[in-house]
């Protein structure tokens, strides 16, 4: 029986999400006034549209739109052989050389940090950036690795029974961030990765 989730609280509506991204873009610009040396790389799935939106904001604010890449970290996951059915591959696309540039890695939710670890390993196989930074829309805590966000749209304390779902116009038809809580306790003691695909889809990609 896959656990089911119900909405507990709305964390951001469309307007709030838009203002949060604008603020994050300004923070990035503040640290990197010359945005030309910067590449934004979104972690699939929802990191990619977020990276595109940030790039558009950066153009509005600074006049230059940095290139945007997409990273599918599946082949670098530390749980690939225990994850359940094979995850669907969407492919990685890094449109430009990252040698000597600043890469801002973009994801929707920062949780255990394992996705970011995989993304760092994959990025480094593409070259030697001068610096890699991390931008996330929501940091929900529970890190299992020494990883932190350089830019966080929102930081909040959650329990392990909760999950944060980011819905984006591009993938989900609406802009919204919600906090979900688990309704029924799981039958077996299952790590987040042991959950079947449907439940993961329902809960967004948050518990990877």
């Amino acid at each position: 029986m896959p656990p089911t989730y119900r909405e507990r609280q709305e964390l951001m509506d469309a307007d709030r999400l838009s203002r949060t991204l604008a603020r994050m873009a300004h923070e990035i610009l503040e640290r990197h006034p010359d945005i030309r040396g910067t590449v934004l790389v979104g972690v699939r799935t929802r990191g990619v549209p977020l990276a595109r939106r940030l790039a558009a904001r950066l153009r509005e604010a600074g006049g230059v739109e940095p290139p945007v890449g997409a990273l599918d970290i599946t082949l670098y996951r530390d749980d690939l052989t225990t994850v359940g059915p094979q995850p669907v591959l969407k492919g990685t696309d890094i449109p430009t050389s990252i040698d000597g540039r600043t890469v801002v890695l973009v994801d929707d939710v920062l949780f255990t940090g394992r996705t970011v670890r995989a993304a760092l390993d994959e990025l480094i196989d593409f070259g030697r950036p001068s610096r890699i930074e991390l931008a996330v829309l929501v940091d929900r805590g529970h890190r299992e690795l020494p990883i932190h966000a350089d830019y966080a749209g929102k930081t909040l304390t959650t329990t392990r029974d909760e999950t944060v779902q980011v819905l984006l116009e591009e993938d989900d038809g609406q802009d919204r961030v919600v906090l979900l809580e688990r309704v029924a306790p799981p039958v077996r003691r299952a790590g987040p990765r042991a959950r079947p695909k449907e439940a993961r889809a329902a809960a967004g990609r948050r518990r990877r």
Binding site: D72, T74, L75, Y76, L80, T81, Q86, V88, L89, K90, G91, T92, D93, D121, E122, D125, F126, G127
Partner: peptide
């Protein structure tokens, strides 16, 4: 076929190796 299409890109990388099946 879809998986092969997604994996083709790995062959064009500077480092043509991913850790997916380590230990197999």
């Amino acid at each position: 076929l879809d998986t092969a299409e997604a994996l083709r890109e790995v062959l064009d990388r500077p480092i043509k190796k991913v850790p997916a099946l380590r230990g197999k």
